[in-house]
Design a binder for these strands. Structure first.
Lengths: 138, 138
DNA sequence: TATACTGTGTATATAGATATAAACAGTATA
DNA sequence: TATACTGTTTATATCTATATACACAGTATA
């Protein structure tokens, strides 16, 4: 099973953290159901072309946060996560991410209207590509 | 002179990079005019309660990118930056930041409409606080 | 039972980020 | 000229992130 995860190589964000965030989003958003088997740390490290230590770090953190459950010899599975928690994680993540985007605009001295314009433009491009369905941007 | 810079301590982004991005935004957005003196690396390190090495790293990178100009013994000043470059930096930064926010929403299985809702909510809060004027979010 | 997978632990190594400190060289002012 | 600032260089140190490798223990299947 391949996870739809992409690493931004030019990003200053640690790799393990990128993995963590993306897996969390998939779980909170319902793409990954409780009980679903995740790729092994070795498989994921091969797929993403990174070290096992790094994938392990991501999985460890996710397990500590209650999103996954790991058993030696068996593998790693999506945990049961309360709907409330999923909702909370989702809302917080999206709110913060959008807030950050808006803040970037303001910091560049863009007006709210200008920021809205850019936002609308991106959304328009999305609709044009029908990207709602596959859920990703380039 | 105090720079309106804030470090996100819980962020995984390196400190020097946070400084870099924020100073770049201030310059590109016109908040900092060419010739303006920036705080010395020592003053900034004191203000932000970080190491001189870290502030220097940020300033070095900004200088390499042509945003500032540094002279031993005199200090560091905002460089002349072409309007085209400023515009490009601004548009790219805002576009990418908003795009990332939208992507976060999609990854959490939010529809475009839902994402728009959150965006609108944030903007409404902004307008409510009259934050357009001071240009920052909490 | 052997093999192939799984996670866990350990080791070594390198690069990056950041801290503190000291010294040197340049600038500005009293 | 002394002092206070400026940036530059160097050194030492610690922590984090990541890489590679190996061995151990657990699971599943042929």
């Amino acid at each position: 099973m391949d996870l739809p995860i992409r690493l931004a190589k030019d990003s200053k964000t640690p790799i393990y953290h990128q993995i963590e965030e993306q897996v969390k989003a998939l779980i909170a958003g319902g793409h990954l159901q409780a009980g679903t088997a995740l790729p092994s740390i070795r498989a994921l490290s091969k797929e993403l072309e990174i070290s096992v230590i790094t994938t392990r770090r991501a999985y460890l953190n996710l397990e500590q946060q209650g999103f996954i459950k790991t058993t030696q010899g068996k593998g790693t599975f999506v945990a049961e996560v309360e709907a409330d928690k999923k909702k909370e994680v989702t809302v917080a993540a999206i709110y913060q991410a959008l807030e950050k985007g808006i803040e970037t605009g303001l910091r560049h001295d863009y007006s709210i209207e200008q920021i809205e314009e850019v936002f609308t433009e991106i959304i328009a491009k999305l609709k044009e590509k029908g990207e709602k369905a596959n859920g990703e941007l380039d």
